[in-house]
């Protein structure tokens, strides 16, 4: 696991914290950010490109509400400890799987998958069950209570 800490200058901190929502819908949105940050439009674009390249941000763009576009679900498996890496690798190999991670629990493998339709999503889960011989908990979202305003990074 990577344990280094990245250092960000004041401009980067503001870019990361202040523009997680309400991104401008106008011809030159980065120019609008530039005016607020007191730098040039090209500098804003360069900063964002770099933050994307070093994986500090995954993208600049829309966050879609789950299940309004295609189908997605959380799923979980209880995998014997000595098979975990192998099963995790198999699960990760599916194109439909976006996130796949270990949690400290009997249900120790958790993954999120997205498909164009629920039928395709369930077919993927069936396939994982038959290839691993393990049961998969299908845990689709039924109601969303979270108001996504982005994440306050609380720079220390």
């Amino acid at each position: 696991m990577k344990q280094f800490t990245r250092y960000f200058n004041e401009t980067e901190k503001r870019l990361l914290n202040n523009y997680q929502r309400d991104f401008p819908l106008c011809s030159r949105p980065y120019a609008e950010l530039a005016t607020e940050l007191g730098i040039s439009e090209d500098e804003v674009i360069d900063h964002l490109q770099r933050l994307q390249e070093n994986k500090t941000i995954s993208r600049v763009g829309p966050v879609f509400r789950v299940n309004t576009v295609g189908a997605s679900s959380l799923a979980a498996m209880a995998v014997p400890e000595d098979e975990l890496e192998e099963v995790a690798k198999l699960v990760s190999s599916y194109a439909a799987v976006n996130h796949n991670y270990e949690r400290e629990h009997t249900f120790n493998l958790w993954f999120v998958l997205t498909s164009p339709s629920e039928e395709e999503l369930l077919a993927t889960l069936d396939d994982i069950e038959s290839r691993t011989g393990l049961h998969v908990l299908y845990l689709p979202m039924q109601e969303d209570y979270h108001i996504d305003l982005g994440f306050d990074l609380q720079w220390a």
Binding site: R6, L15, L25, K55, V60, F64, V69, D148, G150, F151
Partner: peptide
């Protein structure tokens, strides 16, 4: 359909 639009940060990183 879109919850928000802007910079999407990676918490872990």
């Amino acid at each position: 359909v879109i919850k928000r639009m802007g910079v999407v940060v990676r918490h872990h990183e």
